[in-house]
Design a binder for these strands. Structure first.
Lengths: 218, 218
DNA sequence: TAATATATACCTGTAAACAGGTATGCCTTA
DNA sequence: TAAGGCATACCTGTTTACAGGTATATATTA
C-alpha cells in the first residue's frame, strides 16, 4: 500500500445517480489517504475524463446510460490496465461474476454496504486484494440467475460471435470498428452481419437491435 | 427559517441503501445549520426511532423493506404532523403525486439530484416551502401517466416527427420506406435522421435504437 | 415583434451496409 | 470418421446511410 501521507490515492466515482455519487465522494474525501478526482454520471464521460486524469481506482456503477459499466470497464482494463476498478451496483448475477473474473476487475461492492465497509474495500484494493462485499448473502451464492437474452439467443440459434457483434453494433460500432476491436477482417464481420440478418429474418441491423434490446440481450 | 446558529435543524435519513444513506448523511452534516440524528434502513425501524428522537425533517426513501415509504409517511403525518417529510426516490409517478398532495408531504427529490440541490431542498422545506426536484423535467410536468419513453424524448429534446421516425427505423424501415409511409420526401426523412443523430450524439441509428428501446420509447 | 423551434426539402459527396455468393480450417458429435 | 456447425476470409456489385451543408414556410415563445 502506498504511504498515504505522501501520495493520496486518487479515485473517480462513476454513477448516474448524482446524489449517490456525491455522497460517496464525501465519504471517500473524508477517508484519510484518499481523494476524489472527479465524479461522472455515464461511461462515455468517464472515458473522456480519463484522457485528462489518472486515477488509481475507479468506483464504477454497472447500470449507466451511454456506455454501461461493463463495457466501460473492459475498455479501461484494455487501455489503462494499471487503474483498479471496483464495481458498485444494486444487482449481482452470474454474468457479472464471469465478467469480473475474465476482466480482472478488482472488486464488487453492493450499494447496500455501509460507509465503513466501502472504506475497508478501498483500503484492501489499494493493498492489492480483490474484494467482494454484499449484505445480501443470497445474491452471492445464487449463481443460476435468469440470464437475460438467452431466450433470444437460443430462439434464433445465434453463435457467441454473432451475439458479441450484435452488442457492439448496438453500441454504435461500425463494421470496421468491430473488425479492429476484435482483430478480425472487415470481411469476416460482414459475413457475421449477413448471417445475423438471415437468422433473424431482419431487413437491417436497426431492426435486429430493437429486438435484441427488447429481449434483454443488450 | 430557524436561526441556524441557535438550533441546528435535525434530520433523519431513511433509505435501505446504506451507502446512499451514509453519503446523504455526510452531505447534510456538512451543511451549515443541519445535523443528522440517525439513519435507518427500513420503515419499522424509523417508527421505533421516532419514539426516542424528534427530528424536524425526515428524508424518506419510498422503496424500503418492512413498511415502505408511503405507509411510513402516512403513519408519521398522522401521529407527528409537525415533522416535515421529503420523499427521496428513483421513481415518480401519478400515484406518488396524489399521495403527496393528500398527505401533506413537504417535498419530493429525485435520487439523481446533486448535493447542492439537496441542500437547497432542505433549506426551502425548513423555510416552509414545498419542493419538487428532479433532473428529468418530463417527470415534473407529465402528471397523469408513467408514459414510458417520455424521459428519453425530453432528455434529448426530440420532436414528434423524430420520435415517429425512430420507431419506424426500429421496425426495420429504410429511409425510402419511411418517406413512402408518411408521404414525405426522401430528403426530408434524411434531414430528420441527421437531426436525431446530432441530438443523441450517436454514431448511427443502431446506437439510437438501442437507447430508445432501453428507455421504453419503442 | 424578433428570435427560436419545427417540419419540410434540396444538393453533393463519401462511407458503410446489404445481397449473394464461394471457400477453408477447426472443432464437435453422431 | 464423416457430417455439420462455426469462425474465419474473400469477391463483386448495388443500395442505403451518413456528413455537411442550405433554405423556407409555419408556428411558437420570449
Amino acid at each position: 500500500m502506498q504511504p498515504t501521507f505522501l501520495k493520496p490515492v486518487k479515485v473517480i466515482v462513476a454513477d448516474d445517480h448524482k446524489l449517490f455519487a456525491d455522497g460517496v465522494e464525501q465519504i471517500i474525501n473524508s477517508t484519510p489517504g484518499f481523494e476524489v478526482l472527479a465524479s461522472v454520471d455515464n461511461g462515455k464521460l468517464l472515458m473522456q475524463v480519463l484522457n485528462r486524469l489518472s486515477p488509481d481506482i475507479i468506483l464504477l456503477d454497472i447500470n449507466m446510460p451511454f456506455l454501461d459499466g461493463l463495457e466501460t470497464a473492459a475498455l479501461i482494463k484494455k487501455n489503462k490496465p494499471g487503474i483498479k476498478i471496483i464495481f458498485i451496483s444494486m444487482h449481482y448475477d452470474a454474468s457479472i461474476k464471469t465478467f469480473i473474473q475474465k476482466n480482472g476487475i478488482n472488486g464488487f461492492v453492493h450499494k447496500n454496504i455501509s460507509a465503513k465497509e466501502l472504506k475497508d474495500a478501498l483500503y484492501k484494493v489499494v493493498a492489492g486484494e480483490n474484494v467482494f462485499i454484499s449484505n445480501y448473502p443470497a445474491q452471492q451464492t445464487e449463481i443460476n440467475a435468469p440470464q437475460p437474452g438467452t431466450e433470444f439467443i437460443s430462439q434464433h440459434k445465434l453463435t457467441k460471435t454473432e451475439v458479441a457483434i450484435i452488442k457492439l453494433i448496438a453500441g454504435g460500432d461500425s463494421t470496421k470498428a468491430i473488425a479492429d476491436k476484435r482483430s478480425l477482417s472487415y470481411l469476416t464481420v460482414e459475413s457475421h452481419r449477413k448471417n445475423i440478418l438471415r437468422k433473424l429474418k431482419a431487413k437491417n441491423m436497426a431492426e435486429v437491435i430493437a429486438f435484441a434490446v427488447k429481449y434483454g440481450l443488450v
